[in-house]
Design a protein around this nucleic acid. Structure first.
Length: 438
DNA sequence: TCTGGGGTCCTAGGACCC
DNA sequence: TCTGGGGTCCTAGGACCC
């Protein structure tokens, strides 16, 4: 679609040149697997998978693993037969490694100087509108080649007029040898959209897929051509945005500035079932320390805390129990001690004896900037506490998380996660760098 | 035996007010 | 005994994303 825009947001510079919005989605291929392969050349051509926390589910698969029929999100134990039979290489997830490599990829993308939105650990949208239409494909290829050369991570790039279309272009790029798909300048997009299943459209999940199929919409083309009033009436604004985006009308804008988070959750499944209050408390205290450190590092304070516990929803023979409770702090806080105290109080309230707990979590919500002195009662004592928190964070940064902790956090941590397949590579920690033997 | 974790946004419905 | 209408704000739950 050709349209006029205001360059740099200034009316005086209103452009009269025909202008096409060109959004690229850069997506790292099998990102976690690619990270593991980077430091382990022996697994380059082999089927590889990476497991979620606790070695629970399969969350990243190499193409070879996909070809074996291993599904995304499948529980590990269910796929074990295929995995053993085909000698699939298995890794526990190693988020500090993936986070570090992600930052390298994003830094590389920023070098191109276009507006960028870092959308997730392995994806970024780039606004390439400044480049002429006829150069766009080669720009895409250049980006891909540069990221591969500088970071070793393979990517796929889809380019189109809207984010939703660039997602589709990326979907197509994944199947191309070049790894780049460009929909800019395509006269009739319908034959392309017709081949895209409705559930492969960005923003269409399980429920919407069910709803659309019931109404005869099976692919992206059918959604694109459905009347907007019908969509709005029978679904919601998000769905109508998706449909407009399929038509090339941009509704979901590039978010180039990072906004502070609005909530912070720390939750884990246990390595083995937990039955005693004491152990559950240990876990919750640890999650609190983790969460409060996170919000402090973002200079945020929390208004509300929620604690939840539950047994496994998959083991019906033991009886299912799940409960949570939320409490407002008198004054927003990021003080570990206060957060822990409140969480333990909640836990005492919701804990019931005689259950095998599988998971617990802590949620800090109503986050706001810590430096805004909104209360009249801040005192010298508060200053002392923040100083204490600061030195705790500094020490833990230097000597590893939980070097300094609270006694109630425990030391045994029998409930801790299973990680039986860790590559133990940590590029963010000097002492864990891979050793090279000459 | 073993089924992840961390986010955001939207909406319906209740509470409350005039 | 009858029992309006409209507005705002908040929250819980659902759906989606990676």
């Amino acid at each position: 679609m050709k349209m006029k825009i205001y360059l740099f947001g200034e009316l005086s510079l209103m452009s009269s040149i025909p202008f096409t919005r060109k959004i690229a989605l850069v997506d790292c291929n099998s990102f976690y697997v690619s990270c593991e392969r980077l430091f382990n050349p022996k697994i380059r051509k082999k089927p590889v998978i990476v497991l979620s926390n606790n070695d629970g589910c399969i969350i990243s698969r190499s193409n070879e693993a996909k070809a074996l029929g291993i599904k995304m999100g499948e529980p590990y134990f269910k796929a074990k037969d295929i995995i053993i039979k085909n000698k699939v290489e298995v890794f526990s997830s190693n988020y500090s490694l993936y986070g570090d490599l992600s930052r390298r990829v994003m830094r590389t993308l920023k070098k191109f100087g276009s507006p960028i939105e870092i959308y997730s650990i392995d994806e970024a949208f780039l606004d390439l509108s400044n480049f002429p239409d006829n150069q766009i494909e080669s720009i895409g290829k250049e980006i891909k080649a540069t990221v591969l050369q500088w970071t070793g991570i393979p990517t796929s790039i889809g380019i189109a007029q809207t984010k939703t279309l660039s997602k589709i272009a990326n979907h197509i790029a994944k199947k191309k040898l070049s790894g780049v798909a460009n929909l800019i300048g395509v006269e009739n997009i319908d034959p392309i959209l017709e081949k895209i299943d409705i559930n492969d459209v960005w923003g269409v999940g399980k429920q919407l897929t069910k709803f659309y199929k019931k109404n005869g919409i099976y692919n992206a083309k059918q959604l694109k051509n459905k009347s907007n009033t019908w969509i709005k009436k029978n679904s919601n604004v998000l769905s109508s945005r998706t449909a407009l985006e399929l038509r090339g009308i941009s509704c979901i804008h590039l978010e180039t500035t990072t906004t502070k988070r609005k909530s912070c959750v720390v939750s884990r499944s246990f390595g083995k079932r937990v039955e005693t209050f004491c152990e559950l408390k240990e876990a919750v205290v640890n999650y609190c320390l983790n969460a409060s450190e996170k919000i402090r590092s973002d200079s945020l304070v929390a208004k509300t805390i929620t604690v939840f516990i539950r047994t496994s929803p998959f083991q019906k023979n033991f009886g299912y129990y799940s409960n949570s409770k939320t409490i407002d702090f008198a004054i927003s806080t990021n003080n570990s001690i206060e957060i822990v105290k409140t969480a333990v109080f909640i836990l005492e309230n919701i804990f019931k004896n005689g259950y095998q707990y599988q998971k617990a979590g802590v949620m800090l919500t109503g986050l706001s900037n810590a430096n805004q002195k909104t209360n009249l009662f801040s005192s010298e004592k508060d200053e002392k506490i923040s100083a204490l928190m600061r030195s705790m964070d500094n020490t833990n940064f230097k000597y590893g998380r939980s070097a300094l902790s609270l006694a109630s956090a425990g030391v045994q941590k029998k409930w801790n996660m299973r990680r039986n397949h860790s590559s133990k590579i940590d590029t963010a920690n000097f002492y864990n760098l891979p050793k090279i033997h000459a």
